[in-house]
């Protein structure tokens, strides 16, 4: 089955691109056919993290109709099985795609013939970012274990949640009924985000349940990056516990990724960190994560064989 993962989170610099690139490489090394899609339009840098120069072609050729196959602009990389759709050539204006263009890109991404599609997103919560994030079969939020980053993550999660709901309401022609409530919810902190659903359920049981199911079907996972042991190891699990208690989608914690100052150095030197430093804690954390995404299993130990 094809899997599309989006890698996002409100804050810039939390390590989304580093993680996207690293997971892409590790999955490709497992023999999976992987494509990385750089969707940080206007500030793309995935190629750098793969130790490459600016790619010749990319998403721009698909948007300006030079080609009508997105697969055409998935360029091979120095890693076997790993492909990259870059957006370096997309001008800044393209960051604000027209609606029709956006839909075209979204559909093309959904149809890419790869086993794993990883979407690297930009910071912030503009509609394009949210809509790209929602393409995925599973959304990954990257945060760092600091107060402001956590706060941003909650804002991002709430925005994703409301965006999904809004699109569904529009489709069902019910948006006008709830517009006011949604506007209320968008303000301030994550104030009782279940309320809107409960309002819907209260007004029209059948439809409300539909939306509830729709949101319950979403699957999100959290990654804590640049982990230095400055906070409890349980933070990630506590965060998803909170989300699961108060929101309908299902949230999972994928793990902590250790901080290593050599990540920065290798990016600077255009080295691929996981290639240059394979025996670091950071790489073993990333490896565990990649294994979880592919769901490898191990047999229990046989007592008899040991005795």
């Amino acid at each position: 089955m094809k899997r599309i993962y989006s890698i996002g989170g409100g804050k810039g610099g939390s390590g989304k691109s580093f993680i996207a690139a690293s997971l892409g490489i590790l999955l490709a090394k497992q023999g999976k056919k992987v494509v990385l899609v750089d969707l940080d339009l206007g500030a793309s840098n995935l190629h750098t993290l793969l130790g490459q120069r600016i790619p010749q072609r990319g998403l721009d050729a698909f948007i300006d109709k030079t080609t009508n196959s997105l697969e055409d602009v998935a360029l091979s990389t120095t890693i076997p099985n790993l492909y990259l759709i870059s957006s370096t050539k997309c001008s800044l204006e393209i960051a604000n795609l027209f609606y029709a263009q956006k839909l075209k890109v979204i559909n093309a991404i959904k149809n890419l013939p790869f086993a794993y599609v990883l979407l690297d997103l930009g910071p912030g919560i503009n509609f394009n970012t949210l809509d790209f994030f929602l393409i995925a079969t599973e959304g990954l939020f990257v945060a760092t274990p600091e107060p402001t980053a956590i706060e941003n993550t909650f804002v991002f999660i709430k925005s994703i949640y409301l965006r999904k709901l809004k699109l569904a309401l529009k489709e069902a022609n019910m948006w006008h009924i709830c517009q006011e409530e949604v506007a209320q919810l968008s303000k301030g902190a994550l104030k009782s985000p279940l309320d809107l659903i409960n309002i819907l359920v209260g007004r029209n049981l059948e439809n409300g349940t539909v939306f509830k199911d729709l949101l319950s079907g979403l699957k999100f996972s959290l990654i804590l990056n640049k982990f230095r042991g400055q906070v409890t190891e349980d933070l990630g699990e506590q965060l998803v516990e909170v989300c699961n208690r108060h929101l309908y989608p299902s949230f999972d914690f994928l793990g902590n990724i250790s901080y290593d100052s050599r990540v920065y150095e290798s990016i600077l030197a255009r080295n691929i960190f996981i290639r240059k430093y394979p025996y670091t804690k950071t790489v073993s954390d990333l490896q565990n994560m990649a294994r979880r995404l592919t769901g490898e299993k191990q047999q229990p130990i046989q007592i008899k064989a040991l005795k």
Partner: peptide
Amino acid sequence: AIYEESSLATYALFA
């Protein structure tokens, strides 16, 4: 540990 005021897990989440 999750809901107390000093918890990072619910930082700025609730009024």
